[in-house]
Design a protein around this nucleic acid. Structure first.
Lengths: 343, 343
DNA sequence: TAAATGTACGCAATCGATTGCAATTCGAAA
DNA sequence: TTTCGAATTGCAATCGATTGCGTACATTTA
């Protein structure tokens, strides 16, 4: 393995009988080289199949042109889209991506962060694990002089660059829409409230109810209904109430909403006429269920691009210190059949 | 930016008044250090918040403990699952992942490969772009002493490590199943034949027809019906034939199958009684369409783990040369409502 | 012609960690 | 007491690319 040695600038230098420094300058297109020798070096480099050793280059230059990304799961729609967006923007700037998944565990998240620090990445982009409570490892990133950008699931109290969705507003609009459709007694399936994204969605829900003078009913607010199964379970509970809800807002995810839909279908309850359903995330499948599910699009790919470009922008003015900044992307309510019972 | 300098082994050495080499040995838990000094070094390293500079370490050691991955799109279900599998297995071995997407373009694929070579990754894992025809860049990987593992979409003629699905067999089983269900005139939606995965699926289709003495009808074989839209278009064409097909095998993807289903529903054609539909990939949504769609599961996460473990296995016996080896994973036919019209 | 400016290129240090070899210490065996 | 070897530790080279500084030579200007 790895038996053959790669050609280095010294090999090129030796062959052309010049100094390695000249080779380096030629390859980096410096102005302090003669055009003739530059061409010669380039030609020889090509002949010898030279590839720059970025490890050495980065070590010397003190930067790695690499962005580290930590997400709970790579293969969740939202995150894979964000990563695709980051990759897209980063590639254009010649940056590489190192990807880690925290599996929603703080312990693994910490290890991932440490690995990335060791790798001397220039920037770490992170969306917190569900059980991440202590944020010393994030502070550690900053202390090591690495740019930190949080997205979606952020630690509010840390003053860093952030890219988030306006969850509260989106949630407010979704619930307002359901109210406008004449739904009463709108239930909420909520996620772990230590993640701000979920508490914000709850706030949006509460605000909408308040604005339209609708009562807030504790029995209609179900904690931790994150998955399809939990959504289904919550729905069974809600629908067996003495006064069941007229609509259910699965603020955690579309999967949860799917669970709602399946239980409703199984119980012979008609959607949207007897029960309205709204999910969150605009997963591909929401379009093809019957009825199709109203949901909220988060512009995930765009979000990834925004994250990367935010970093490059900040880097562009190196001189000025980075000021904490939050970019809020407004999600879009996608109204579909599951909440449409008027015109 | 990057203003503060990180602590190095020299800082630790200076503080303890010992040589840097001793610090290095202590940190790498070498046996050639006194237990007392080892403890002292570890303690001081912790106090000074020391993080090893992997760039330097890797440069010196001539290996990067990094695996490069090139896929067409990170945010396609199959690929994000494979990547999750690779990450999972790699993380356990202390390896990092650098991820690139080729966007199905050979030109970008080549650039990605070159970047990874420059990064001195230890291994490159790749699934070819649809328009990748020339494979010099893959040869280049090998010539640079980097282990190459192809998966799913592989270049057969290159003798490398490969992890593939037995597409032919899976396809054969799917078509056999449809025949057993009594479907006649089974149509095939096929993908670009320069990708072997698609030509293999076609072969499986043809073999099944042959085995059961069914005629091969060219009018029932539609090229390039890869997406939902193209699947829909193909279906309109097929269903308007003088003698339309009794079933459609969308061998390209579940999205294509979804296009088939939507057109059939729109035309009032009953699935599965009047038309059988089978997709490929076991996308999440196939379970929730009505009727649910018969498809083929590729065990994508497992495939990723297999890829990574194949690499680690080969590395385990460094002495012996790596022999080209192909691991074939048998996909599983998932029979659902869309092809079930008997018992 | 002398001085000044500029171009091209080599030397050597540097980034931070690792490692072969040499040097030192210390206790044990002869 | 001398000798040998094991255990520690230090020295210095090394991985490959970059870059500040200095030098040699050519060109321009006074």
């Amino acid at each position: 393995m790895q038996s053959k040695k790669r050609t280095t600038i010294y090999d090129i230098a030796q062959k052309l009988n010049i100094a390695a420094s000249s080779v380096s300058r030629a390859l980096s297109n410096s102005s302090h080289v003669n055009e003739a020798t530059k061409k010669l070096v380039l030609k020889t480099a090509d002949e010898l199949n030279y590839k720059r050793n970025n490890l050495a280059s980065n070590l010397r230059k003190g930067q790695s042109k690499t962005i580290g990304v930590v997400v709970p799961f790579i293969n969740q729609n939202f995150f894979s889209n964000v990563i695709a967006g980051i990759e897209d923007a980063s590639y254009q700037k010649g940056y590489n991506l190192i990807i880690c998944q925290s599996n929603e565990l703080e312990s693994k998240e910490i290890k991932c962060v440490n690995t990335l620090i060791n790798q001397h990445v220039d920037c770490i982009v992170i969306s917190l694990a569900a059980d991440s409570s202590d944020h010393r490892h994030l502070q550690n990133i900053i202390d090591n002089g690495i740019q930190l950008i949080q997205f979606d699931r952020v630690a509010d109290e840390l003053e860093t660059l952030k890219v988030i969705n306006d969850n509260e507003q989106a949630s407010f609009e979704a619930v307002s829409h359901m109210i406008a459709q004449g739904y009463k007694r709108i239930a909420l399936l909520e996620g772990p409230q230590n993640l701000h994204i979920f508490s914000q969605r709850k706030t949006g829900y509460l605000n909408a109810l308040k604005k339209f003078d609708m009562p807030i009913l504790d029995e209609l607010i179900i904690e931790n209904a994150w998955t399809k199964e939990l959504g289904a379970k919550a729905t069974r509970k809600l629908l067996s109430l003495a006064r069941p809800p007229g609509a259910i807002f699965a603020s955690t995810s579309d999967f949860s909403a799917l669970g709602v839909l399946e239980v409703a279908s199984a119980m012979g309850i008609k959607v949207p006429s007897e029960l309205g359903i709204c999910g969150y995330s605009n997963e591909a499948f929401t379009e093809i269920t019957s009825p199709s599910i109203t949901t909220i699009d988060q512009f995930s790919v765009y979000m990834g691009q925004t994250v990367a470009n935010l970093y490059f922008q900040e880097m562009a003015n190196k001189d000025t210190e980075v000021v904490p900044k939050t970019i809020s992307i407004k999600p879009k309510l996608i109204v579909r059949s599951s909440t449409l019972r008027k015109g």
